[in-house]
Amino acid sequence: MAEKMLIDARGSFCPGPLMELIAKLKSGQVGDEFEVLSSDKGSAKDIPEWVDKAGHEIVESRENKGVWHITVRKKR
């Protein structure tokens, strides 16, 4: 059963949110989803870029009151 995990990286600067996501992704299973919360604009650009390169999937990316919610599905 795929799980959904929340990674609260609010307040952390680049590349903190990305590194937190990668650490969690590594230990997850294919199909798991990870929702990263980030207040860092740079990370909001950089995380989708990495996800695309690494062959995972962006499920959703939205901003709400200065916090980006980026949901990533582990594909491999």
Binding site: F13, P15, G16, M19
Partner: peptide, 17 residues
């Protein structure tokens, strides 16, 4: 002053991740 990942932590993550 801000919550920037410390450089030593990033070097270590470069190795581990």
């Amino acid at each position: 002053e801000k919550n920037v990942p410390p450089f030593k932590q990033l070097f270590q993550q470069a190795v581990e991740l």
